[in-house]
């Protein structure tokens, strides 16, 4: 029984974006694990603990050298193995189709795959589906609840859709689940876990071995733009009635809340 969890690193959420001659950089080079992926790691570990005690949990990432840190965290939390798909440095980022294919190829036989619902860097919201397709697996994204039926090789999954709608699915295994926030509380890795994880061997694979050159697509923006600098607070003037009207207008027309 094999469980996999796909993770990636993203820039620190507090880091500011700087444009230097059209090249994008960050004020803070520290990277973090994609926040949704932490919930995915926890979900994978709980799947093993609660439903599939004989399973082996593999954390897999596709990224530059620094991505091993994310794998170490996953190992420290309790994953059994780790796979790092490396590639040569390249401007831009890999298309999700390529990422999904690579991961699909690297995971030879797998029963359950957990992913974060999207990476907060590019919000592609696509990789889980590509992995599922590669192995003819079920796929549900934005998962809020999971109930396992190991004997029947089925899952009952609740996903979130627009307007707070909840959709209930019965889903056969093998399956890919895209995990959303709030599914669980990711455990804090123990120090012995962290120390052991440092010494664990990480399997290294090369992107070029998994995806043919013709299928390997890099997305390279022709330009980047920064958003308008955050304007100072717009003070709404007038008497109460005028303020209320203006605020109502802002909510309806500018912010599209109503």
């Amino acid at each position: 029984m094999n469980i996999a969890v796909c993770i990636k690193q993203v820039p620190n959420t507090e880091a500011q974006v700087i444009l230097n001659d059209g090249i994008l950089a960050f004020s803070d080079p520290k990277k973090i694990i994609n926040p949704y992926d932490e919930f995915a790691i926890e979900a994978a570990l709980r799947a093993k603990e609660q439903a599939f005690p004989d399973a082996s949990v593999t954390a897999i990432t596709l990224g530059p050298e620094s991505a091993t840190e994310a794998l170490r965290t996953a190992l420290a939390m309790g994953c059994d193995q780790a796979i790092h798909i490396t590639h040569e440095p390249h401007p831009g980022w890999l298309a999700p189709l390529t990422v999904g294919q690579a991961i699909g190829a690297a995971l030879r036989q797998v029963d359950l795959v957990f992913c974060g619902r999207q990476g907060i860097d590019h919000d592609d919201f696509t990789v889980p589906y590509v992995i599922a397709n590669a192995h003819q697996m079920s796929c549900i994204n934005v998962v809020k609840e999971i109930t396992y039926k190991p004997e029947e090789k089925k899952l009952w999954v609740v996903r979130e859709s627009d307007g707070g709608q909840k959709e209930y699915f019965e889903c056969p295994m093998p399956a890919v689940l895209g995990i959303s926030i709030g599914l669980n509380k990711p455990r804090y890795p123990s120090l012995p876990g962290i120390m052991k994880a440092k010494k664990k061997a990480i399997e290294s694979l090369n992107l070029t071995d998994l995806v043919s050159d013709s299928n390997c697509t890099w997305i390279q923006p022709s330009t980047y733009e920064l958003p308008k600098a955050k304007e100072a607070c717009k003070m709404i003037k007038g008497d109460i009635a005028e303020q209320a009207s203006e605020l109502a207008r802002i909510l309806k027309e500018d912010l599209h809340i109503v």
């Binding site: 507090e14 880091a15 500011q16 973090i32």
Partner: peptide, 12 residues
């Protein structure tokens, strides 16, 4: 751990 201060505000 991630931002170097307990409030999680940008180091910048």
């Amino acid at each position: 751990e991630q931002k170097g201060n307990p409030w999680g505000i940008s180091e910048q």
